[in-house]
């Protein structure tokens, strides 16, 4: 555990000693802030219009459905497509380029300790981004009274979702010395998994079901609704474990053991 923390600490320091952490968090704050502002403004305008029309038996518009949920779904795409690759691209690529991978792999650490340490370091940076999201959401509690319970599921969903991508991004980063390549490939893979459920639109058979199951987004829906479904939990945890396992295989291959 001490070893894992030493590596995690080193990764975290590297993020904050370079512009990456600040850039990622700044971009995230701006995009997330814009989403939040837009959804809130739309909500305000529409709910005023509803009020003006007298309601007429329609179900009341809630902050949860009209602001928080779209925010989480919107944030997802931003995180997914852009920022996670920026976080994971350096994890192994940079060590390979600078030769420090030789230091890590010749130190008395197991490969798994190194991998988990790196994953944990990236995860902590990502956790800061989840906290930013809640910074925006918490302002709703000052001016309105949204339902707090679904937030727990939404937070967990966002966290697991990002963790799964971090694990896969880390794996992709083991293949190259070039961080740009790692980022671009991760971006492409994530995008593909993001749009996999489009397949259901034209293929309703087994294939459609399989692709829909594989898609990252399918499993986020229930979390976004504020529900924790064991199946989705299992899905994300499986992807995380798979990413870590593949990283371990790939590091093993670096040593010429395959």
């Amino acid at each position: 555990m001490r070893n894992i923390l030493a590596i995690a600490g080193k990764e975290l320091r590297a993020y904050f000693h370079s512009p990456i952490a600040y850039l990622v968090m700044a971009v995230y704050s701006v995009l997330c802030g814009f989403f939040f502002y837009s959804f809130t403004a739309t909500y305000v305008v529409q709910s005023l219009r509803m009020q003006a029309m007298g309601g007429m038996g329609a179900p009341p518009m809630t902050l949860n459905d009209y602001v928080i949920r779209p925010l989480f779904e919107g944030v997802l795409s931003v995180v997914l497509l852009l920022l996670i690759p920026l976080i994971t691209m350096r994890l192994y690529a940079e060590e390979k380029r600078s030769g420090t991978i030789e230091l890590l792999l010749t130190s008395p650490l197991t490969d798994l300790e190194i991998i988990l340490g790196k994953f944990l370091g990236a995860l902590l940076l990502y956790a800061a981004m989840v906290v930013i999201t809640f910074g925006y959401v918490s302002t709703l509690f000052i001016y309105g009274n949204p339902d707090a319970k679904p937030l727990l599921a939404q937070a967990l969903g966002l966290f697991l979702f990002g963790s799964a991508l971090l694990a896969l991004g880390m794996w992709i980063s083991t293949f190259t010395k070039n961080q740009i390549i790692a980022a671009v490939v991760s971006f492409a893979v994530f995008l593909l998994f993001y749009v996999f459920d489009w397949v259901t639109a034209y293929s309703s058979g087994t294939l459609g079901k399989v692709f829909s199951y594989l898609a990252f987004t399918t499993h986020f829906d229930t979390f976004a609704k504020g529900v924790i479904d064991l199946r989705d939990l299992v899905y994300y945890l499986s992807v995380i474990v798979l990413g870590i396992f593949l990283t371990a295989r790939s590091v093993e291959a670096l040593k010429g053991r395959v």
Partner: peptide, 13 residues
């Protein structure tokens, strides 16, 4: 103790 051909240092530390 191992010193590879290129010293394995982290430039930002």
């Amino acid at each position: 103790g191992y010193l590879p051909e290129n010293p394995p240092v982290y430039p930002d530390m």
